[in-house]
């Protein structure tokens, strides 16, 4: 069940319009609108700074805690949102699935792109904070930031294909996702630096692509912390397997989506 790229290309306009719809509907009928894209990470950052920075006093290798956690939160929130919406997309669009044919795979794929807008808006805040705290991004940011975003996207999509397809059959998946996201966040260096992880368990980080994404992002932006090491290769492999397996699984299951969803 390989992907029919030719067909996907034929449906590119539907894909784009779905992305456009998700973006334009995102903040309609919310009073603060786009401000939420800024407020959500800011509020989370404040909470983390109080609890993990002030109370738990997590060492951050000299980086002020607010900007430390914010630089971790940005890629993380993007990933978490993308994962959440792509997993929910098949059930959310059941109306389309049961009434019109199109390659189903574009639904989770389109869903992952809308959170990118939030991410870009929040990046402006990070920029402001960097000016305030006097950080200058390294030249590595030029290629590392896009790569990190792409990597997070691919990982979210990989998991989204799996969970999105499963969600069609078992609504339990919807219940599990919030826990998955929570556990995954604490297994990733968002509120603490990766170096805090015991040395002999460091290899475990190789299994978590988001560890690489966040560390890479932070390192490129703040110029401090640990540069991505060879363990990254293992993480990339995990992402590739997740994505490849996800596509395969999704394609296997999609034939009966319309009958079951």
């Amino acid at each position: 069940m390989p992907i029919n790229f030719r067909e996907l290309w034929d449906y590119r306009e539907l894909f784009l319009i779905l992305v456009w719809r998700d973006v334009s509907v995102r903040y309609k009928q919310s009073m603060l609108g786009v401000l939420w894209a800024i407020l959500a990470p800011l509020i989370t950052m404040t909470i983390f700074t109080v609890i993990f920075g002030r109370v738990a006093k997590i060492p951050t290798n000299g980086i002020p805690y607010p900007i430390f956690s914010f630089s971790g939160l940005l890629p993380w929130l993007f990933f978490a949102q993308a994962l959440q919406v792509s997993s929910a997309s098949m059930v959310a669009e059941r109306n389309l699935i049961t009434k019109v044919y199109f390659p189903r795979i574009i639904l989770p794929a389109a869903a992952t792109l809308a959170p990118l807008v939030d991410f870009l808006i929040a990046c402006l805040i990070l920029g402001a904070m960097m000016v305030y705290y006097g950080f200058v991004p390294t030249w590595h940011a030029l290629y590392l930031i896009p790569l990190c975003v792409l990597w997070a996207l691919a990982t979210a999509l990989g998991v989204g294909f799996w969970l999105g397809a499963l969600n069609v059959y078992f609504r339990d998946v919807k219940m599990i996702i919030p826990f998955l996201i929570q556990v995954w966040m604490f297994a990733s260096p968002v509120v603490y630096p990766a170096s805090l992880f015991p040395q002999k368990w460091q290899w475990l980080y190789g299994l978590n692509p988001m560890a690489g994404v966040i560390e890479g992002f932070r390192w490129a932006m703040l110029g401090q912390g640990v540069a991505p090491g060879p363990v990254v290769l293992a993480s990339v492999l995990v992402s590739v397997l997740l994505l490849g397996g996800g596509v395969y699984f999704f394609r296997r299951m999609e034939r009966s989506f319309a009958d079951v969803v």
Binding site: I17, R21, Q29, N95, L96, K99, V100
Partner: peptide, 23 residues
Amino acid sequence: LEVGTGFHPELSGRDNIFMNGAI
């Protein structure tokens, strides 16, 4: 199979023409 498949209530009539047409 249904009129208005993919219509989104929050979008304007104009937007929905494009949305629905694409679908």
